[in-house]
């Protein structure tokens, strides 16, 4: 007769953790330094976590206790600066905005975001994203200004504001570009981040630069490369919904919208 030692159902489940309880997870960090020819390898660390521990905190724990040389970029720790984007268990996400407990796994793998050059370990190069963002002329274009004495305040109703507000929430974290299937194969594509910003200004009724911007994105590596796979909007942490912005923008170009 077999003796049953302990019923598994009596074990506390990890998703019904009580306050303050500590668990240990395995954090696998991709280490690489491509400019020095060092290919990516995984370093594994055992990290104590609580219900509220974020992936960024787990990485910082590794830096403080095991290996200070892990390269990771972060600043605000509250999903506002857009620095800490990385691939967490295979999908792009902000490390500071992803709790270990919501990943439902005792093994967490962090890798640098795809479609960006790797600087070292988890830090990637944003040159292309920033230069594509600048190409969209991310500022109000018009002759007169609010500060010249004879021009009036540019009044906007709440309805006018709602037309572009969500797109102005972009923190340039690059998660969208990293999830985009076109970005995966086309190195010159403007990308969802830039195209969404083009729409943010086109939809702003103070702006007069619509024709200028539509000309810039009407390019063989511009808006027409979007296939509405929606992956950008799937990963965006700020509700920007770049896929919507791009389709609305294309609506102008195809003449469906005025």
């Amino acid at each position: 007769m077999a003796v049953v030692a302990a019923k598994p159902s009596e074990e506390p489940k990890s998703n019904t953790k009580t306050t303050g309880q500590t668990d240990t997870i395995t954090l696998r960090i991709s280490r690489s330094n491509p400019s020095e020819g060092q290919e990516s390898t995984f370093a594994e660390f055992q990290v104590p976590v609580q219900k509220w521990t974020t992936v960024l905190e787990a990485i910082l724990y590794v830096k403080q206790n095991f290996d200070h040389s892990v390269a990771v970029r972060y600043s605000c720790r509250q999903a506002s600066c857009g620095s800490c984007g990385m691939k967490i268990n295979g999908r792009p996400a902000l490390a500071c905005y992803t709790k270990v407990s919501e990943l439902d796994s005792n093994v967490i793998t962090v890798e640098p975001m795809n479609n960006f050059p790797i600087i070292r370990d988890l830090a990637v190069d944003f040159k292309q994203l920033i230069s594509n963002h600048k190409k969209m002329k991310p500022f109000i274009i018009r002759e007169d200004s609010e500060v010249t004495p004879d021009s009036k305040e540019f009044i906007q109703t709440p309805q006018d504001l709602e037309k572009f507000l969500q797109f102005s929430y972009c923190i340039k974290c690059g998660l969208c570009n990293s999830a985009c299937p076109t970005m995966a194969t086309d190195e010159s594509f403007i990308g969802p981040q830039g195209l969404a910003q083009a729409y943010r200004y086109v939809a702003d009724n103070r702006d007069k630069g619509k024709d200028e911007r539509l000309k810039i994105i009407d390019d063989s590596h511009g808006i027409w490369r979007c296939h509405f796979a929606g992956s950008c909007s799937h990963v965006c942490p700020k509700g920007v919904d770049p896929a919507m912005a791009i389709q609305l923008l294309r609506g102008y170009m195809l003449g469906f919208r005025k």
């Binding site: 491509p34 400019s35 640098p112 975001m113 795809n114 479609n115 960006f116 050059p117 790797i118 990637v124 299937p181 970005m183 995966a184 194969t185 190195e187």
Partner: peptide, 9 residues
Amino acid sequence: LSNREGIKG
């Protein structure tokens, strides 16, 4: 060195 996902991604 771009870490582009490529066709597989």
